[in-house]
Amino acid sequence: MTLAFTFPGQGSQFVGMGRELAESFSSARAVFEEVDDSLSQNLSKMMWDGPIEELTLTSNTQPALMACGIAAMRSLKAEFGVDITEAKYVAGHSLGEYTALCAAGSLSLSDTAKLLRIRGDAMQAAVPVGAGAMAALLGASVEDAEAAAKAGQTKGICQIANDNAVGQIVLSGEKDAVQAACDAAKEMGVKKAMMLNVSAPFHCDMMAPAAKAMKEALADTVFEAPLLPVINNVQASPVTDPEKLRDDLVAQVTGRVRWRESVQWMHANEIETLAEPGCGKVLTVMLRRIVKGMKGVTLNTAEGLEAFATELKG
């Protein structure tokens, strides 16, 4: 099995996330405890007991999802002898890129938790509530989405934020501009264009204040060379240089998440299986829309981790 580990972004969180791993494995519990200590917050209690309104705040969601991904990876190694280097690549969707970098040894767990808290706070504070918006275009090509965004730009900032999968593209920007882009997409015959219920317009130029905050935070953070190449959101191709990885995390805040291209690159370079550790199955479901026949595996239960390790070892 030629393998890559891929880590999800916002949207995969739910009350109870990570609880089974913590109850099953001491290695997972240790991850949640270290994240709690790093943030001086009982984040794990919020993850397991809610309330969902607090868990879905960006500043909580981001470190929570990262903690679940790292808990799964450390449990794989401690309990079943599966190391990150069994894979050829790692990748992560938006905040998931931080999880990938932590899993690959570029960032310490404590630093990753603190960076994601800063990132969540900065992204939320970058734009006044109600000023920005995001919208999903379903059934649209990249060319359709670019044309719709261009139409929206007559009203203000409007950009492709996420190129998630074939026919699944997300726009981000000023509210009136994104609405105008949706109207244009419908006129062009795009299957569905719908505004999303989000707290801020991520991955567009409105996030420039957050990018500045992350540049300052990342400048003070120790980056090591990853144990294996990272297919990052900005390049959609392998990156191993620590300084390039650092710079691209800043660019990622306002830039497009090139997830479809990242998966297609891995498929073209002989990756057969994408494993999604931590929480949910968003990336595994997206995979079906990107590459036919490529295998996706979710790793978020004790049973799932054991079955994966057994298959991997033949």
Rank of each mutant, 00 (worst) to 15 (best):
F80S: 08
P8W: 14
P277L: 13
G156W: 08
T221Q: 06
L227C: 08
T85W: 06
V198Y: 00
P277W: 10
L116H: 08
L274T: 11
A177Y: 01
S12N: 08
K191T: 07
N42Q: 13
T154D: 13
V291E: 12
D83M: 08
K150C: 04
M134P: 10
D121F: 03
F14R: 06
H203L: 06
P209N: 01
E224K: 15
E97V: 14
F14I: 00
M123R: 12
E303C: 06
K155H: 12
L3M: 02
F308D: 00
A113S: 15
M194A: 01
M206S: 12
E23N: 07
F25K: 01
D163R: 03
V31G: 00
A135V: 04
E187L: 04
Y98D: 08
V15D: 01
V15I: 11
R74M: 08
G280R: 12
A71V: 11
A302S: 11
E23Q: 11
G16R: 08
G189E: 00
L55T: 08
G189I: 02
S110V: 15
Q13R: 05
D183R: 11
Q13M: 05
G50L: 10
D247M: 11
A211Y: 14
A161H: 04
A275C: 10
H267Q: 13
L249G: 07
T221N: 07
G69I: 12
L299K: 03
S141I: 09
K150T: 09
Q153R: 15
N269Y: 10
P226H: 13
D241Y: 13
A307Y: 12
E276L: 11
S26A: 06
A104Q: 08
A148H: 09
Q159V: 09
A67I: 00
D144R: 09
L39T: 11
A147V: 02
R258Y: 03
L116W: 12
L76N: 11
E33S: 15
I271P: 03
D220K: 13
A180G: 06
G132R: 01
